[in-house]
Amino acid sequence: MNRSSKLAIFIALATIASSGSAYAQEIDNCWYGPFGNKIKNGTNELCWKNNITDQQKNSFKLSIDKTIIKRSIFFDFDSSNIKPESRIVLNETIDYYKNKKNHINKITSTGNSDSTGKESYNQNLSERRAKEARKYLIENGVDSKKLEIYSLGSKNPIASNETSEGRCKNRRVDIEIISEKNKN
């Protein structure tokens, strides 16, 4: 690469980086600088172009390979017993698993607690909650090899621990189902 080409690349990159507003023009697919000037090569003949042609832009299709479903179940203060209303959410998870069994990579059960008490106790309580949810899923037909548990204690609140209502929302297990559309 000769010196003028290197200089042209440097100037083009410096212009783009310093302006923050260089953009691709769709008409001729050239790059333009912050003042509307076409960014050209060192010999001032050719413009810098995008790698995407108009034909590629029109044929591009977004393909989503993974689906992630998140649900939460809630617990009473200082308890790892699954509430009846939480069983409904777990049963929906089990139904989804049975219908999509071959496409599911994993299901995670992440236990959480409010910030009442010592963190070491909350960590243990959140682990017991995650294990109870996992146990319920296994007892109702979910493959244990696809289940993972995590416990976060009070480190991941979704509401303020300053109010009773907020603490209730933080005493939970988050269930996450990760599946692939084309997995056999």
Rank of each mutant, 00 (worst) to 15 (best):
N2L: 13
N2S: 11
R3G: 12
S4K: 10
S4F: 08
S4V: 10
S5R: 11
K6A: 09
L7P: 05
F10Y: 14
F10P: 02
A12H: 05
A14H: 15
A17L: 15
A17G: 15
S18M: 15
S19H: 09
G20Y: 11
S21K: 15
A22N: 09
Y23T: 15
A24C: 14
Q25V: 15
I27Y: 13
D28H: 08
C30M: 05
Y32F: 10
G33M: 11
F35V: 08
F35C: 13
N37M: 13
N37H: 13
K38E: 10
I39D: 06
K40H: 06
N44R: 12
C47T: 02
N51P: 05
I52K: 11
D54N: 14
Q55D: 03
Q55K: 07
K57S: 12
K57Q: 10
K57F: 10
N58L: 08
S59V: 10
F60W: 04
F60K: 04
K61H: 11
K61V: 09
L62M: 08
L62A: 09
D65Y: 03
T67K: 05
I68Q: 08
K70M: 10
R71E: 07
R71H: 06
S72T: 07
F74T: 02
F75E: 03
D76G: 12
F77K: 14
F77C: 07
D78A: 09
S79A: 11
N81E: 14
N81L: 15
N81I: 14
I82W: 05
K83D: 12
P84L: 06
E85V: 09
E85P: 06
I88A: 09
I88E: 12
V89D: 10
L90H: 02
T93K: 03
I94D: 00
I94P: 01
K101L: 01
K101I: 02
K101H: 00
K101V: 00
I104M: 01
I107Y: 01
T108E: 00
T108N: 00
T108L: 00
G111M: 01
G111K: 01
G111S: 07
N112P: 04
N112W: 01
D114I: 02
S115K: 09
G117N: 04
K118P: 05
S120V: 14
S120C: 05
Y121E: 02
L125Q: 08
S126C: 00
E127A: 12
R128V: 08
R129H: 08
R129P: 03
R129C: 04
K131T: 03
K131M: 06
K131N: 09
E132H: 04
A133N: 01
A133D: 04
R134K: 12
R134D: 02
Y136C: 03
G141E: 06
D143P: 02
K146P: 02
S151F: 05
L152T: 14
K155R: 15
P157K: 12
I158P: 01
I158T: 05
I158F: 01
S160M: 13
S160K: 13
N161P: 05
E162H: 01
E165W: 12
E165V: 15
E165D: 11
G166F: 11
R167D: 08
K169N: 11
R172Y: 03
D174W: 03
D174S: 07
D174C: 04
I175R: 00
I177V: 14
I177S: 03
S179M: 07
S179D: 06
S179W: 03
N182H: 15
